[in-house]
């Protein structure tokens, strides 16, 4: 519970309600919900295009955007994730949570946490592309628009999380 912890967080239901309103606004203004991983793909293509343009064009997955001759960074998700960064920073600054640290359970070392973080990141990055979106884009926005894909994503992500939770409990509790 929040009361056990040093930092006070917003009431989760209030946060959820506000997030829902933001998502509603997103649909009202742009016709699409929230998202994150699509932006990472675009950042990545933008960088790859600078360092290895030939590779990007030959790659079916990355090259599709290039072939379509679109400006890879002129996309709402790209700006949205930029906003997420600023928003997170503002909230952290307001509640005095700005510190450089590697956060980990006291039962594991910093090194273990770092390895777990990078492995988890790789898996999430891979999965988000295969599943056409991450927790926010595929799961959250998918649910809000009542698409079947959103509910499948929700069940698959949380289901697999619970399924594997036992094996990685040492990392967290």
């Amino acid at each position: 519970m929040d009361t056990n912890n040093a930092t006070k967080y917003m009431n989760p239901y209030l946060a959820g309600f506000l997030l829902g309103l933001i998502m509603l606004a997103a649909y009202y203004f742009t016709g699409e919900g929230l998202g994150a991983s699509g932006a990472f793909k675009r950042y990545e293509i933008a960088v790859l295009e600078k360092i290895a343009p030939a590779y990007v064009e030959s790659n079916h997955f990355f090259g599709a955007h290039i072939a379509a001759k679109e400006n890879i960074l002129e996309n709402r998700l790209v700006y949205m994730v930029l906003g997420v960064f600023f928003g997170g920073f503002i909230s952290g600054a307001v509640s005095g949570r700005l510190t450089f640290k590697v956060e980990h359970s006291p039962k594991i070392t910093k090194k273990t946490r770092v390895i777990a973080a990078i492995v988890g990141g790789i898996l999430f990055g891979y999965g988000s592309q295969m599943g056409r979106g991450c927790t926010s884009g595929s799961g959250l926005s998918g649910m809000a628009s009542l698409s079947l894909a959103g509910f499948i994503a929700l069940f698959a992500i949380f289901g697999s999380g619970y399924l594997f939770a036992y094996f990685f409990r040492k990392l967290w509790i």
Partner: peptide, 19 residues
């Protein structure tokens, strides 16, 4: 969608974040 979700769930439990 299912395979991607399962991989993401695994990434979530190991890495502790989503993107």
């Amino acid at each position: 969608a299912i395979a991607g979700g399962v991989i993401m769930g695994l990434g979530f439990i190991i890495g502790g974040f989503c993107p």
